[in-house]
C-alpha cells in the first residue's frame, strides 16, 4: 500500500469547508433570538427550539410557496421533456425537407441566453395577460434548445436496424418512438429530467419577474422576500432555508449515483 495519508488530510480539510455551511444552517435553525445577536458568535443553540419553523409559517404562506414550486417544476420538467422528445425524434429519426435548417435554427437558440430576451418575453407574457399566473410561470420555460439537441444526439446513436425491423413489422412512427426509441434512451431521459427538475426548482429570475402577488411566489422568490420584508432575522431565514433545502437533499441522498452519472454524462458529451 502506498502512503496516502496526506491525500486524506487534504480531502478532509476540503470536506469540512464544503459541509460547514450546512452544519451552520442546521444548528442555527434552532437558535433563539438571544443566541443570534451575541458577539462572539455562538455555534450551538443554548436550547433546541422549534419556534423558528412555526414563525416562518406565520409570517409567510410557506406551504403555498412550496406547492407553487412543486407544481411549476413538475409541469415544466415533464412538459419540456415531452416537447423535446418529439422534436428530437423528428430531427434524428425522420426524413423531411429542411431538416438541416430546422436543426441549425434550434442549435442557434442555445446562443441566445434567457437573460438577453427576458424583457420582451415579459412583455409578450403580459400581452397574453399571463403575469402572475401559472401559465406565465410555466409556458415560456417549455422550450429548451439544449434538451432537444441533447436528446437528438442520443437518439441518433440508437441503431437504425431496430427502427427498420419495427417498420417491417408494421409499426407506425409513434409506436417506433414510444416502443423502440424511448426504451433505449433511458439514460438520456433520466439525465434531462434530473437537470430540468433541479434547474426549475431553483429558478429565480423568471419567477421574480413574472409574479407580483404573494400567493403566486415560488420558493426561491418567497425566501428572498422573507429576507427583505421579514426583517432579515437570521435564525428565521435558516429555518426557512432548511425547509427549502431538505427535500432536495433527501432526494439527493437516495439518488446521488444518478446525479453524478448525469453530470459526468453531459460534461463529456458536450
Amino acid at each position: 500500500m502506498r502512503k496516502l495519508w496526506w491525500v486524506y488530510v487534504l480531502l478532509s480539510i476540503g470536506l469540512i469547508a464544503m459541509l460547514f455551511p450546512f452544519f451552520w444552517m442546521v444548528l442555527s435553525a434552532f437558535k433563539s433570538n438571544a443566541d443570534v445577536y451575541v458577539y462572539p458568535p455562538k455555534w450551538f443553540p443554548s436550547q433546541w427550539n422549534f419556534d423558528n419553523f412555526k414563525r416562518v409559517f406565520e409570517m409567510v404562506p410557506f406551504a403555498l410557496y412550496f406547492f407553487n414550486s412543486l407544481l411549476v417544476t413538475v409541469l415544466v420538467t415533464y412538459g419540456q421533456l415531452f416537447i423535446s422528445v418529439l422534436a428530437a425524434f423528428a430531427l434524428s429519426r425522420l426524413k423531411f425537407p429542411f431538416k438541416n435548417a430546422v436543426f441549425m435554427l434550434i442549435v442557434s437558440t442555445m446562443l441566445m441566453p434567457f437573460v438577453v430576451t427576458m424583457i420582451p418575453v415579459f412583455l409578450i407574457v403580459s400581452a397574453f395577460r399571463w403575469i402572475d399566473t401559472y401559465q406565465g410561470l410555466v409556458i415560456p420555460s417549455l422550450f429548451s434548445g439544449f434538451s432537444i439537441i441533447f436528446l437528438r444526439q442520443f437518439f441518433i446513436s440508437i441503431p437504425q436496424d431496430l427502427q427498420d425491423a419495427a417498420m417491417i413489422d408494421g409499426c407506425g412512427f409513434f409506436r417506433i418512438l414510444f416502443q423502440v426509441i424511448l426504451p433505449n434512451a433511458k439514460p438520456a431521459i433520466a439525465t434531462i429530467t434530473l437537470f430540468n427538475f433541479l434547474g426549475e426548482w431553483r429558478n429565480y429570475l423568471w419567477p421574480l419577474i413574472v409574479t407580483n402577488s404573494t400567493k403566486m411566489r415560488t420558493l426561491p422568490v418567497g425566501l428572498r422576500y422573507l429576507m427583505t420584508e421579514g426583517g432579515g432575522e437570521y435564525h428565521l431565514m435558516m429555518a426557512a432555508s432548511l425547509m427549502a433545502i431538505l427535500p432536495v437533499l433527501i432526494v439527493y441522498l437516495f439518488s446521488e449515483k444518478q446525479f453524478i452519472k448525469s453530470v459526468a454524462f453531459t460534461g463529456l458529451k458536450s
Partner: peptide, 12 residues
C-alpha cells in the same frame, strides 16, 4: 444540488 437562494441566505 441545493437552491441558490437558500444557499445565499446561509452565506449572508
Amino acid at each position: 444540488v441545493i437552491p441558490v437562494v437558500a444557499a445565499s441566505l446561509i452565506w449572508v
